[in-house]
Simulated scan of single mutants.
Amino acid sequence: MLLGICLGTNDLPRAGAFYDRLLSTVGMVRTMEVDDEIGYGLPGGSSCFWILKPFDQQPATLGNGTQVTFKAKSNDAVEEFHRTALELGGADEGSPGYRYRPRYFGAYCRDLDGNKLHIMYEPD
């Protein structure tokens, strides 16, 4: 069972400001902050997503083929997440639209460190 995901950053305060706003679009909040890491999760819940400065003190690098996917509550929320990421300085990797299956609506972007993020919605 997967407990959570960590992404590296070279500027924790800047990444924290980015993710504070971005993750609020999917109902996530900052749930903890210690030394060189910030955790996010649902309000009152445990952290399941972390941004951090690498433990080995080497620069954070992105993984080729690595992607973190977040689930939105609607197509509009997918669009808001993507728009917010770009407004905050993230890069577009795929505009909101239908993909894969007839009801799968998603978008792709990169954070300030180049980590790839995917946001999607598909009705149950």
Results as ranks from 00 to 15, higher is better:
residue 41 G to C: 04
residue 23 L to D: 11
residue 60 A to C: 06
residue 105 F to I: 03
residue 20 D to R: 15
residue 12 L to N: 00
residue 119 I to F: 03
residue 90 G to V: 04
residue 99 R to S: 09
residue 112 L to N: 10
residue 44 G to H: 03
residue 5 I to M: 05
residue 36 D to L: 01
residue 87 E to L: 15
residue 44 G to L: 04
residue 55 F to L: 13
residue 25 T to Y: 02
residue 27 G to E: 09
residue 109 C to S: 14
residue 10 N to L: 05
residue 27 G to F: 10
residue 26 V to D: 07
residue 12 L to F: 00
residue 77 A to C: 09
residue 59 P to L: 03
residue 76 D to W: 02
residue 16 G to Q: 15
residue 35 D to R: 14
residue 51 I to L: 03
residue 6 C to G: 04
residue 48 C to Y: 01
residue 53 K to V: 04
residue 95 S to P: 04
residue 96 P to Q: 13
residue 80 E to M: 13
residue 84 T to K: 14
residue 1 M to C: 01
residue 1 M to W: 03
residue 31 T to N: 12
residue 97 G to Q: 11
residue 114 G to Y: 01
residue 22 L to V: 06
residue 74 S to V: 12
residue 53 K to P: 00
residue 94 G to E: 07
residue 23 L to R: 11
residue 116 K to N: 11
residue 124 D to E: 10
residue 74 S to E: 09
residue 64 N to W: 02
residue 88 L to C: 05
residue 47 S to I: 02
residue 25 T to V: 12
residue 113 D to M: 08
residue 59 P to K: 11
residue 4 G to K: 05
residue 95 S to G: 07
residue 70 F to W: 10
residue 40 Y to Q: 02
residue 62 L to M: 10
residue 60 A to R: 04
residue 27 G to K: 13
residue 71 K to L: 08
residue 94 G to R: 11
residue 121 Y to A: 08
residue 82 H to I: 01
residue 115 N to Q: 09
residue 26 V to L: 08
residue 116 K to H: 08
residue 11 D to H: 12
residue 32 M to R: 12
residue 33 E to N: 09
residue 102 P to K: 15
residue 18 F to Q: 09
residue 55 F to M: 13
residue 32 M to G: 13
residue 10 N to H: 07
residue 25 T to P: 08
residue 10 N to S: 09
residue 24 S to Y: 11
residue 47 S to E: 14
residue 91 A to V: 14
residue 106 G to L: 04
residue 104 Y to E: 06
residue 49 F to Q: 05
residue 108 Y to K: 01
residue 63 G to V: 13
residue 84 T to F: 06
residue 74 S to H: 10
residue 106 G to Q: 12
residue 17 A to Y: 02
residue 32 M to L: 14
residue 114 G to H: 05
residue 94 G to A: 07
residue 54 P to I: 01
residue 21 R to K: 15
residue 101 R to S: 14
residue 109 C to G: 03
residue 121 Y to K: 09
residue 103 R to W: 03
residue 121 Y to S: 06
residue 34 V to H: 12
residue 95 S to F: 03
residue 36 D to C: 03
residue 116 K to L: 09
residue 92 D to C: 04
residue 55 F to C: 01
residue 62 L to W: 05
residue 27 G to P: 06
residue 12 L to M: 00
residue 41 G to H: 03
residue 17 A to V: 12
residue 8 G to E: 06
residue 61 T to S: 12
residue 30 R to V: 06
residue 91 A to L: 15
residue 85 A to C: 12
residue 94 G to D: 05
residue 77 A to L: 06
residue 117 L to Q: 06
residue 8 G to K: 05
residue 115 N to C: 07
residue 97 G to E: 07
residue 15 A to C: 05
residue 92 D to N: 15
residue 58 Q to R: 15
residue 63 G to A: 11
residue 86 L to Y: 10
residue 70 F to Q: 01
residue 63 G to H: 09
residue 88 L to I: 09
residue 1 M to G: 13
residue 90 G to K: 08
residue 22 L to F: 06
residue 37 E to P: 00
residue 110 R to D: 00
residue 94 G to M: 10
residue 114 G to C: 08
residue 47 S to L: 01
residue 88 L to G: 05
residue 25 T to I: 04
residue 123 P to G: 06
residue 121 Y to D: 03
residue 67 Q to D: 00
